[in-house]
């Protein structure tokens, strides 16, 4: 049995007047995991997150965080939760240092060590005014404030927007480290590779409704790899009749196939002939996600 969920969303709906933000959402996030939250624009990711944090009034349903009611016990929940909004601003005239100190003290803390360490790590200049910072550097301020109070749960809404690839990598490292320290992370994202790289599980939402919740590793298993081989001559189709190989296409000396299992056997078989060229591509999860995104289909 799994541990008690940190976030437990049941039948959550949020309507903005007539507009449906989310509808009947059920989702659990367990301690110590990084849960990715994916979906096309307007799917309801931000709505879900903001309803959890009591920034929005729920229209229906129930959200428990740490077993506490998201509205009634919001103060206690916020004491234990760090949050990075998808779109935020700060005091443009004030120095980063001043802003972060204020936010830290709002969390009731005075120990700045983690704040300083994060700023150093993310290469954030604390002596500059917030208004003078580039988009990416502003995002870093948001990240530092989300992590600096060393809380049990971190909720991130599209955390890597505006970050360069190097910073993104540093951020993924940070996420993994936090997970090692027992933190629970719930993050929305548009970047599939990012979810694939750092998340343990992913929830996909579309038009306000949850489509699927899956382990990343089992998703990857389902996907298989694309193998392309160029032989020096024609080839016997029989050697590809292996369990776990499908979509075999033979065009003269070129052969393309999808391998989901028994890659070892495939290699052994094809190596009986002379190979001129060969490539093996791992599918990213893109295709799978795109099916969920566009049709709400059941995946592969």
């Amino acid at each position: 049995m799994r541990k008690k969920p940190v976030i437990d969303i049941r039948g959550l709906s949020k309507y903005y007047g007539d507009v449906v933000g989310i509808e009947g959402l059920d989702l659990k996030v367990y301690p110590g995991e990084i849960m990715g939250f994916l979906g096309p624009n307007g799917a309801g990711k931000t709505t879900t997150i903001r309803a959890c944090l009591d920034l929005l009034q729920k229209s229906k349903g129930e959200v428990k965080i740490f077993g506490l009611d998201s509205h009634e016990d919001s103060l206690e929940i916020r004491r234990r939760t760090g949050y990075l909004p998808g779109d935020f601003g700060m005091y443009n005239d004030l120095k980063v240092k001043t802003i972060l100190r204020y936010l830290l003290s709002q969390s009731g803390l005075s120990d700045e060590s983690k704040m300083l360490e994060l700023a150093e790590r993310l290469d954030l200049d604390m002596d500059r005014r917030y208004g003078e910072l580039s988009k990416g550097n502003r995002q870093k301020v948001g990240m530092v404030q989300a992590f600096m109070a060393d809380q049990d749960l971190i909720i991130l809404d599209e955390p890597t927007t505006g970050l360069d690839p190097l910073m993104q990598q540093k951020f993924y490292d940070l996420l993994r480290e936090e997970r090692e320290n027992g933190k629970t992370i719930f993050m929305s994202s548009h970047i599939l590779a990012e979810v694939e790289e750092v998340c343990d599980r992913v929830a996909i939402i579309r038009k306000g409704r949850l489509q699927v919740v899956e382990d990343i590793s089992s998703l990857k298993e389902k996907m298989g790899k694309k193998l392309v081989v160029e032989f020096d001559d024609g080839v016997d189709p029989e050697i590809f009749k292996i369990d776990g190989v499908k979509d075999v296409k033979i065009e003269g000396r070129w052969v393309t196939m999808i391998v989901t299992r028994n890659l070892d056997q495939v290699i052994k078989n094809i190596s009986k002939q002379n190979i001129i060229n060969m490539s093996l591509e791992t599918f990213s999860l893109d295709q799978l996600f795109l099916t969920y995104y566009s049709s709400g289909g059941s995946g592969t």
Binding site: L53, L55, E76, R78, F88, M90, Q106, G108
Partner: peptide, 14 residues
Amino acid sequence: DDRRMDILLTKPIS
């Protein structure tokens, strides 16, 4: 206007 409300109101103050 400056979009600070989300961060300010998710700190543990009522």
